[in-house]
């Protein structure tokens, strides 16, 4: 498995996990994944203006019977903290948070963002799994989606450049 196949395998894993409603805001490293999601006829994809909207959208879509995910950068995750807390967590809404981990080891320019990402997830009580290996994509995404559904809470997967095919 080559890293450039990562986005395709991530999408396949999301579909195998039953995800059929996805909201997103682009990051350069997420571009390929979002392009694949947008082109998939089995997934309803909604492009956002701001990430917190996506928490509301996933909440509403869950009410209508969808299995949902949001794809965003960790800066966008910080933008969504109130919606995550007062809507998703408060209402017991399952959703998969697919967060690109800017400021991860080996990255440049986002170290502050990288340093607060895991502590904020922990502070919100959101369980998270960091994806660094290609051969762990499928089990992690399917397992995290099952955990979200079972616990009726958001669960996060932190996507690194290793699995997005963007590591220089």
């Amino acid at each position: 498995m080559a890293p450039e196949d990562g986005p395709k395998i991530i999408l396949e894993s999301m579909k195998e996990a039953g995800i059929n409603f996805v909201t997103s805001l682009p990051d350069f490293n997420l571009a390929k994944l979002i392009e694949l999601v947008d082109g998939d006829p089995e997934i309803k994809h909604v492009a956002l203006c701001r990430e917190e909207e996506g928490i509301g959208l996933c909440t509403g879509a869950y009410m209508g019977g969808k299995t949902t995910a949001i794809i965003m950068q960790n800066g966008g995750f910080l933008n969504s903290c109130n919606g995550l807390t007062t809507t998703a967590l408060n209402f017991n809404i399952p959703m998969l948070l697919m967060i690109y981990y800017a400021g991860d080891i080996g990255d440049e320019g986002f170290s502050t963002l990288g340093s607060v990402t895991e502590p904020v997830l922990s502070g919100l009580g959101i369980r998270y799994y960091v994806l660094r290996k290609m051969d762990e994509i499928k089990n992690t995404i399917k397992g995290a989606t099952l955990l979200a559904t079972d616990s009726r809470r958001p669960v996060a997967v932190l996507l690194t450049k290793n699995v997005l095919g963007t590591r220089r």
Binding site: L57, G60, A61, G65
Partner: peptide, 11 residues
């Protein structure tokens, strides 16, 4: 407004 849009798209 976002929750409502999600419901409208799902139903």
């Amino acid at each position: 407004s976002s929750i409502g849009l999600g419901v409208a798209l799902a139903a």
